Amino acid sequence: MSQPEIFDRARRHKRRDRAAPAYRDHAFLRDHMLDGIHERLSAVQREFRDVLDLGSFDATFTLPGATITRLEPGKRFAEATGAIHADEDMHPFPPASFDLVVSAGVLDSVNDVPGALALIRRALRPDGLFLGAFAGAGSLATLKAAFLAAEPAARFHPQIDVRAAGDLLSRAGFALPVADVETLTVRYSSIWSELRDLRGMAATNLLPDARPLGRATLMRAVQEFTEKADPDGRTPERFEIVYLTGWAPDESQPKPARRGSGTTSLADALKPKK
């Protein structure tokens, strides 16, 4: 028997289609992630020719000199940009198709994250690079607290923390895996402004059993959110951006030393120098 899925795939597709026309007005979070990905790319001294943009939204990721294939689960985004219309954990690419895969702002809403990472690793050529970014554990802390105070119901997605992200990279077979986190704080004039951004970036509730918000719950959440405002009336919200870096294994890569091969004991290393 198959496992129940965390997110409603059809709802995810519809939310992305709804967000497509005005997405640029709310794309600050993915833009920030792409800046982080480009910063990490700039530290790699090699050229990438065949690139996959996995979960490409409005196709703003570019890399001079590269051929970029895009995959996008939203039909309207895909039609507008020429992307392949498919889910990130069900993509059709054969092994060793790309030397770089990037993914910004999607892995936090993919049903099968381990499967998606395994497919990414499979699609990379030996010594190919994966760079990803998504909103991880600790994101939307203010909004979560406001809604939980208003109604103790499951309205927010489970989130992946940075340690679990690193473990997922290792389990997927990546070499030299690195996961790190960066905090981005955004200050909102009202809860409505934040909810508009989340709708605009297709980041609202995708849980299968999500219930509509009642007016009383929403009004209580508005009050809770407003009470957390700074003296200037703006309420800070936190986005914890988890960045992933992993390489497809290759014989040319540095290998960790074999266990027990060291020539200096820990006791000797800790002795004070004379």
Rank of each mutant, 00 (worst) to 15 (best):
E5S: 12
E5V: 12
D8H: 10
R18D: 14
R24E: 14
D25W: 07
D25H: 13
F28A: 14
M33P: 01
M33L: 07
L41M: 07
L41S: 05
S42C: 10
A43S: 13
A43N: 07
V44I: 15
Q45M: 13
F48L: 02
L52M: 06
G55C: 02
G55E: 04
T60R: 15
T62H: 11
P64I: 11
I68V: 12
L71D: 03
E72I: 00
P73H: 07
P73V: 00
G74C: 02
K75C: 00
T81D: 00
A86D: 14
D87G: 13
E88Q: 11
E88V: 12
D89E: 08
D89R: 03
D99S: 09
A104T: 05
S109L: 14
S109K: 10
N111W: 06
V113W: 10
P114W: 11
L119R: 14
I120A: 04
R121I: 01
R122G: 00
L124P: 07
G128M: 06
F130C: 05
L131A: 04
A133M: 08
F134C: 04
F134Q: 02
G136I: 06
G136F: 01
A141L: 00
A141C: 05
A146S: 07
A150N: 04
A153G: 06
F156A: 07
H157G: 02
I160Y: 03
V162A: 10
A164L: 12
D167Y: 09
L168Y: 07
S170E: 15
S170N: 11
F174H: 07
V178Q: 12
A179Q: 10
V181G: 02
V181C: 10
E182G: 03
V186N: 07
V186F: 02
L195C: 07
L195H: 04
L198W: 03
A203Y: 09
P208E: 06
L218D: 01
M219L: 15
A221N: 05
A221P: 05
Q223F: 11
Q223A: 15
F225Q: 01
F225W: 03
T226Q: 14
T226R: 15
K228G: 00
K228M: 10
K228P: 00
R234V: 00
I241K: 03
T245W: 01
W247Q: 03
Q253C: 09
K255E: 15
A257M: 13
R258E: 14
R259L: 13
G260T: 02
S265K: 06
L266T: 15
A267I: 13
D268M: 04
K271D: 05
P272T: 03
